[in-house]
Amino acid sequence: MQTLKLVAVSAGLSRPSSTRLLADRLAKATEERLTERGRPVEVQVVELRDLAVDIAKHLVSGFPSPALGSAIDAVTRADGVIAVTPVFTASYSGLFKSFFDLIDPDALSGSPVLLAATGGTARHSLALDHALRPLFAYLRALIVPTAVYAASEDWGSGGDEWTAGLPSRIDRAGTELADLMAGRQPEAPAQDVDEDVDTDADEVVPFERQLADLRLD
């Protein structure tokens, strides 16, 4: 059976980095789900911090270094991509955006991509929806339904009655990415059916019948 290739892109700047930690945990969750399905997988992590100078030079020269070219090839040829960025000024980081600016607009078309971000406060979690999703929608990627945001207080937290904890969200997102990589669509959540609803309410009445009902005797 063909080995699937999973590439995690981390735009963290510090070492150690919570962004890299989140990328590693998402990659591990995805790998475990694929292994359970009997699908061999090869995991690679691309650290953009180590490529920052090469990315800047490529933007002005148009020529990638061997290391940057290898990273771009890994992402564009992957069966699944995990993209993780720290949130700066309510959006993705400049390093993260600069790297994906170098990706051919058609290279990720139809490719499963899991989006994730880290930040100091939960107030910036909407960056996943107003910044990252539009970017990868433009690239026509197949975006995993569950995106994962990890604020400082999420690490080590089990969540509460309203919000699932970080480990639960990581596992759910990893499962969804594994489903897409293995060629399966994620199962839609079951919807409750109200037995009291009149199923005839949506019946389409032919136009001729509506006219007949309006006629006077």
Score class of each variant (00 low, 15 high):
R39F: 13
E31L: 08
A90E: 08
L4R: 09
A137Q: 07
P64H: 10
F100A: 06
A29Y: 08
L132A: 06
F99T: 02
P86Q: 05
D202V: 14
R25W: 02
L108V: 10
G12R: 02
R20Q: 08
V205R: 15
H124T: 03
A56S: 09
W162E: 02
G183P: 00
E31F: 11
E195C: 11
A164E: 10
E42A: 14
D171I: 04
R169M: 05
G80A: 05
A131H: 13
V197E: 07
I143Q: 05
L59D: 03
I55V: 12
G156D: 11
D217E: 13
A122E: 14
E176P: 03
E32Y: 11
R209Y: 15
D79Q: 01
V205T: 10
A131E: 06
A11N: 03
L142W: 12
V204M: 14
S93I: 03
R209L: 15
T30Q: 06
Q44L: 12
H130K: 08
S93W: 04
D194W: 01
R49E: 01
L180A: 07
V197S: 04
Q2P: 15
T3I: 04
S111R: 13
D54H: 06
A188N: 07
L126C: 07
D213W: 11
T146M: 02
E195Q: 15
E32V: 05
F207T: 00
S10H: 06
L21E: 13
S65H: 12
S93P: 02
D160M: 08
I72E: 06
L59S: 09
D200I: 02
G174H: 05
P66D: 07
S10A: 11
T199Q: 12
